[in-house]
Design a binder for these strands. Sequence first.
DNA 1: GTCTATAAACCGATAGAC
DNA 2: GTCTATCGGTTTATAGAC
Lengths: 203, 203
Amino acid sequence: MATSDSAPRARGEYAKSSQRRKEIISAAVEVFSESGFRDGTLRTVAERAGMTHAGMRHHFPTKVDLLEAVLKWREVETLERARLTHPIGIDVIRTWIASVAENTTRPALVELEAVLSAEAISADNPAHEYFNDLYRRAEDLLTRAFATMAERGELRAEIESEVAARLVLSTTLGLQSLWLRNRSIDVATELRIYTGVLLTVEL
Amino acid sequence: MATSDSAPRARGEYAKSSQRRKEIISAAVEVFSESGFRDGTLRTVAERAGMTHAGMRHHFPTKVDLLEAVLKWREVETLERARLTHPIGIDVIRTWIASVAENTTRPALVELEAVLSAEAISADNPAHEYFNDLYRRAEDLLTRAFATMAERGELRAEIESEVAARLVLSTTLGLQSLWLRNRSIDVATELRIYTGVLLTVEL
DNA sequence: GTCTATAAACCGATAGAC
DNA sequence: GTCTATCGGTTTATAGAC
């Protein structure tokens, strides 16, 4: 799945086309966040990007191609940020919570994930495997962090690493979905309280 | 819609119509669970109920009418059950967890709520207010229970009732949505572990 | 109560002009 | 690159026969 612009000829044309793609993806994020993938229409996306849906086809031949671009955008916006710093142990948890806090400033991102991932529960949804994989990797990341902490005696002895990881992940997902309905909830603070209870050290 | 027919006849017809409605609702729960409200079609629902979608219109004039019936059925199946036993304090939490455990035997119910509630994040969704209200009432129920427990010293002193309530609710929602992707997760057990950490007494 | 048949609207995809 | 025009398919809703 390499990018389609593999042969960069004139730099100007490439930059312009790249900019257009970004505008379309941005519009698609809005529409898919509001209406989901199935009900979000190409005509609506195109309208917000200032085009017709037929013109958009030059950049994204099918609707699924557009979805894949949106998911890739989402990926870059979230996981990459946390991975570049290579934290270990308790710093993974701190980075996780900081990332959740930052998400509070970007409701569109949170809503996109909530809506698309729920749709993707159906096995025939084009994003089904994407979200299965996403959550499995998140669980692995947290499990490794808690395992390291357990060796150091920083995790309560009666809590297994895998269980702690799933609790943090599920609480994050649940709190975010409640927050989408009631923006007065302080997601990061409540997540920090909850996670702190699992530990023997200060978070 | 009462006919001029006399009693025995009318009773039979009424019971038949009521039974037909239940069959349609049952089919709608299946279809909406699998495909959501927007993508789940009246034709599919009707087919599973052994009718045509036009014939179904006699029982549910519009698609939104059918959705409302499904939501009402779901309501009766869950929250009502917990409310009828009138538990207080820690017994509310125990009843909650027992209810979550029972949900494990009914994936369609859990998937229905996950898919419909995510769709209903959009303010223009017909079930938007329904889910806002549902989660607010669940939070109130749990907050009152934890407040009672706090008075009895059963809740860790540093945890506020409102926060404990939201943590249990969000963890429940998050665990269920992970469970829909990986059925090997023991939702009730992990929820019990997590809730137990918040308490000073055995759950 | 349930059916057949169809209206009216909308969807994604595409052909072809410019 | 973007447009107009349109195709084939799908949807909800409805009219009317039985």
